[in-house]
Design a binder for these strands. Structure first.
Lengths: 244, 244
DNA sequence: GAGTGGTCTAGACCACCAA
DNA sequence: TGGTGGTCTAGACCACTCA
């Protein structure tokens, strides 16, 4: 009868709890790798039942923001563990063998955000950014030429030295040095022909087909924080994907 | 105390219910597009609480096997709806425009499964298969050269005529004509140079970089049912992917 | 208004982990 | 043995759809 015609959108309780927990995460109340309070504790804090907190945490776990460990507790997800360090790297050897991965820094300079990249990172054109170029070597063969662009505001002090210290594990470094955890990423793939300079860096012939992977990574609250273009040699490697 | 040392693996009730529902799905008790019984009804049937059935269905919904519609019921997912017809097609125009998609059949012949493809489809080498080649045209430009291989057992009677009848919507045809719904797929992407024959079909120069997408699709119970190799022209298109 | 899925609660019990 | 997450239940109530 006297209901609102357009109820300003119903919002489940567990969703609101999820937001509250996310805010604490952003505020740094619990850092990557640490445990968050138990479900019962959170239930008391937010004055809801354990089941509701549970459902909120389920959502965070589904988004890889948090990791549950039965019998132990719920932990803030991290890129530091060896297993999840390369979470976004989908390139594997076609023969299935494991490989040694090394990085080789080419350059790390400051510059200004421009055009498409500025737009994708939601920055005004001209904003100061850090631009990194590097090679990734798989078992001593250079297979990926990475071009990474970061807003220099949040990544103050990031330079060649820091990158080397962290052995090229960028996502791990973002977390430990800057408290910024990437939650998800969007990629656009296409096949291109290697231009002269890329060919030289990768040790292949110009015109060689390369898999171009453009990636934008997002942190909590869906804020874009990293743009990356990887050019990959895929003669004996491939990019794996699971469709559901 | 007197617990089993290696409890033959604990299996939650809702998981068992999920299996039971899946079996009914495989048996064809409810066909794609139809509604399955309500949660309460299923709860009675399996002698469990509604919450448990609910969790089972949650799992099926997460795997896109089933679709929930609040206030109406739960439906067996289908590829027939216009929206989900191209669920596995990730190629979009770089300018974001919508495009008209048409298929153009090149050939459809019977042959024998061999080597890698036989292995990926879990078929013995020499098993009879159906081999389809076709072009996909985006707004009048040929962009994908598809090579599809299907076991001929489950797809009896599949030929050029059937494909044309269904206007090239393969997944939709598998469902409506054979009751086979693809649940998930695995893809391997790489960049290659177009060979002579592919270049001719696609109307490009030999050596032009192509995005090669090899896909194996699985039906209920993780049974591989289709192998597919798509060669894509990506000069003004790209493959989109979301990493979580 | 009846029926369906969606939310929320409260409480019991199970499986896992660590001390 | 105690604490944590995981399962299961039973029941109340809410939001959506459709006749």
């Amino acid at each position: 009868m006297n209901k609102q015609l357009n109820p300003p959108s119903f919002r489940p309780l567990y969703d609101q709890i999820k937001v509250l927990i996310t805010q604490s995460l952003i505020a740094g109340e619990w850092k990557p790798g640490e445990a968050i309070p138990s479900e019962i504790e959170l239930a008391h804090r937010y004055k809801v039942s354990q089941g509701t907190v549970r459902k909120a945490i389920d959502g965070l776990a589904a988004e890889n923001i948090v990791v549950r460990r039965q019998g132990k507790g719920t932990y803030v997800a991290t890129h530091n563990e060896e297993a999840s360090k390369l979470r976004f790297l989908r390139l594997t050897a076609s023969n299935g063998k494991k490989e040694l991965l090394q990085h080789q820094l080419i350059s790390c300079v400051r510059s200004k955000a421009q055009g498409e990249v500025a737009r994708m990172l939601a920055l005004k054109a001209g904003t100061s950014v850090i631009e990194v170029k590097r090679l990734l070597n798989f078992s001593d063969r250079s297979l990926i030429l990475d071009h990474i662009i970061l807003p220099s505001g949040p990544f103050k002090g990031l330079g060649a030295a820091r990158i080397e210290e962290n052995k090229g594990s960028m996502y791990s470094m973002y977390e430990t040095q800057y408290g910024i955890r990437m939650v998800r990423a969007e990629e656009r793939l296409k096949a291109i022909a290697a231009d002269k300079s890329s060919a030289k860096e990768l040790g292949i012939a110009p015109g060689f087909p390369l898999l171009s992977i453009e990636r934008v990574s997002y942190t909590y609250g869906d804020k874009p924080m990293e743009w990356r273009l990887g050019l990959c040699v895929t003669d004996d490697h491939h990019y794996v994907n699971e469709l559901e």
